[in-house]
């Protein structure tokens, strides 16, 4: 056991280089998935608050289906399933698309609650001055809702960052996958997985600090807004 830690220390620079490069891929998947999730979440969140029943139903089906199935299953459908019917994606794209669609379902609910939190009087007022629904959304509701949804979006990003580790199962060359490769070469599993955990912590802890900061600022913002109203 002491021997293996000695070996781990000798190989540390090599491990650090490989793992930090892999962490960049982890960040790429997180950012890529996040962008798709925000676009889908905003679009379906607006649909979900629509006065049309069918539009609401479409958004509901999207949310319920993608939130009730594990993201690993979704990744396998996209990577292996689509491959079977001739749509071959590289692992990285499959992961980004998978996390994006899955996260979109989660963010739909976040954006819906943000939109619903804006006082109905504001929507009525903008209709009264002749704005259309898309205009109202674009200029009145969404800019205010974005402020409300920032903390839950922050929590979602932290969850996503950790969840990207599952992309190793479709061989996307991210942190967890490269850790596996190093372990197959050196058999130093505890040392390498501990390093991996530390790298994830270095990325997620600052993010959760930031989110908590946003949460407390939003709380204050709300109180101040209430006082001026």
């Amino acid at each position: 056991m002491i021997e293996s830690w000695g070996r781990a220390i000798a190989l540390f620079p090599h491990f650090a280089e490989v793992l930090l490069l892999a962490a960049i891929t982890t960040v790429e998947i997180t950012v890529g998935g996040f962008v798709i999730a925000v676009i889908l979440g905003l679009a379906f969140g607006i649909l979900k608050t629509s006065p049309h029943r069918t539009r609401r139903a479409i958004a509901t089906v999207y949310v319920e289906v993608f939130r009730s199935v594990p993201v690993l299953t979704q990744l396998f459908i996209i990577y292996f399933g689509l491959g079977e019917i001739g749509v071959r994606l590289d692992p990285l794209s499959a992961a980004i698309i998978g996390f994006g669609i899955n996260g979109g379902a989660y963010l739909t609910e976040v954006f819906r609650s943000g939109i619903e939190a804006i006082h109905a009087g504001q929507m009525e007022a903008s209709f009264a001055i002749g704005m259309t629904r898309p205009q109202t959304m674009r200029y009145i509701i969404v800019p205010q809702a974005v402020r409300i949804v920032l903390p839950p979006i922050g929590n979602y990003v932290i969850g996503l960052l950790k969840e990207t580790s599952i992309a190793s199962a479709v061989a996307a060359p991210e942190l967890m996958y490269q850790a596996g490769t190093l372990i197959r070469q050196t058999f130093l599993s505890s040392q390498i997985y501990l390093m991996v955990a530390v790298i994830y912590l270095c990325m997620s802890l600052p993010l959760s600090r930031l989110t908590r900061h946003l949460e407390s600022r939003m709380g204050k913002g709300k109180a101040a807004g209430g006082a001026t109203r």
Partner: peptide, 23 residues
């Protein structure tokens, strides 16, 4: 709480399954 919530469940899983046999 901070450490366990900051790292993926998968790392904990692999540490327990692949790492513990080392000790």
């Amino acid at each position: 709480i901070e450490i366990v919530r900051g790292a993926p469940a998968l790392t904990l899983l692999f540490l327990l399954y692949f790492g513990l046999p080392g000790i």
